[in-house]
């Protein structure tokens, strides 16, 4: 079998059945565009939730009066807890400054004394910023006699956890659905292309072509169509994310950013989609009708 002939046959087969080839390419392009946009939305929704999650911190208020030595040792104990990234001490004076920044008034002017207790801000490592882990941490902190109370954005964390779970499930279901639909669409379109070439296939069978020789040009053609569909989809996605989004919503455009690897992945997905679609059709419709 001559490989160069097979390649030439794939390329010229492409020209010979322009309509069905174009249909395949457009189908692959639309499928990839859908999958790409879906990936962009999913990635950014997760990125947004991750940003929110990164803001999670616990604040443990200390029992007054707290001696400087005691604060240092509590800080060291908490830093050694599993999942703690760092601990920052907020003195009464710093708390007063924060109050002034937030409310525009000096607490000493309002009340004549500073009621704000000193506290420790506890930052957690990635993977420990879930409501369950934070709750475990809170319980542990509350058992310490030097700590009067612990606060954190409990409600926000619960919402993030719930939404993240939902996003994962929806992403998985939709991802599988879109991929399967794309494969079915592409395989059907390639089946039409094979049907258009049934005379060629029959002649090949009768003059002694092996099944692999008959199938290979269709598989290569599928990959080629996938790559062309992929290039078109990459162009459209780049245009939508880089230009169209900026025109429609500059704020959203500033937030949305995709790495070059994403575009390479879309291209690879195109080739894979073309290949898978043609494999399905080729295995089903070529070389199964000779009485064996």
């Amino acid at each position: 079998m001559s490989f160069s002939y097979t390649v030439r046959e794939s390329v010229s087969g492409f020209r010979r059945t322009r309509l069905s080839s174009t249909l395949s390419i457009v189908t692959i392009c639309i499928a990839l565009l859908l999958m790409g946009l879906f990936a962009v939305i999913t990635i950014h929704a997760e990125r947004f939730l991750e940003d929110l999650r990164n803001r999670v911190e616990l604040e443990a208020f200390l029992v007054e009066p707290a001696a400087t030595v005691a604060i240092d040792s509590i800080g060291q104990v908490i830093t050694a807890f599993e999942g703690v990234d760092s601990v920052m001490y907020v003195s009464k004076a710093t708390a007063a400054e924060i109050f002034k920044r937030e409310f525009g008034e000096d607490i000493l002017t309002v009340l004549d004394f500073n009621p704000l207790p000193p506290s420790l801000k506890i930052y957690l490592k990635d993977g420990y910023k879930t409501s369950r882990q934070v709750q475990i941490m809170e319980t542990r902190l509350r058992t310490m006699p030097e700590i009067e109370s612990v606060i954190y954005h409990k409600a926000m964390l619960e919402v993030i956890d719930k939404r993240a779970g939902n996003i994962h499930n929806v992403t998985l279901a939709l991802g599988v659905f879109i991929s399967l639909s794309a494969i079915v669409l592409v395989s059907n379109t390639i089946r039409l292309a094979i049907y258009a070439k049934r005379k060629l296939i029959r002649t090949m069978e009768l003059v002694g072509a092996t099944r692999m020789f008959i199938r290979l040009p269709f598989l290569l053609e599928g990959i080629l169509q996938g790559i062309i569909g992929g290039v078109l989809a990459v162009g459209l996605l780049y245009g939508i994310l880089g230009y169209l989004l900026r025109l429609v919503s500059p704020e959203l455009a500033a937030f949305v950013h995709m790495e070059p690897a994403f575009y390479v992945a879309v291209l690879a997905a195109g080739a894979l989609l073309g290949f898978t679609g043609s494999v399905i059709s080729v295995l089903r419709f070529i070389g199964s009708g000779n009485g064996h």
């Binding site: 079998m1 001559s2 002939y5 002649t203 003059v207 002694g208 072509a209």
Partner: peptide
């Protein structure tokens, strides 16, 4: 020529 291409 097709027959010969097919048969290598």
């Amino acid at each position: 020529a097709f027959t010969l291409h097919v048969t290598g």
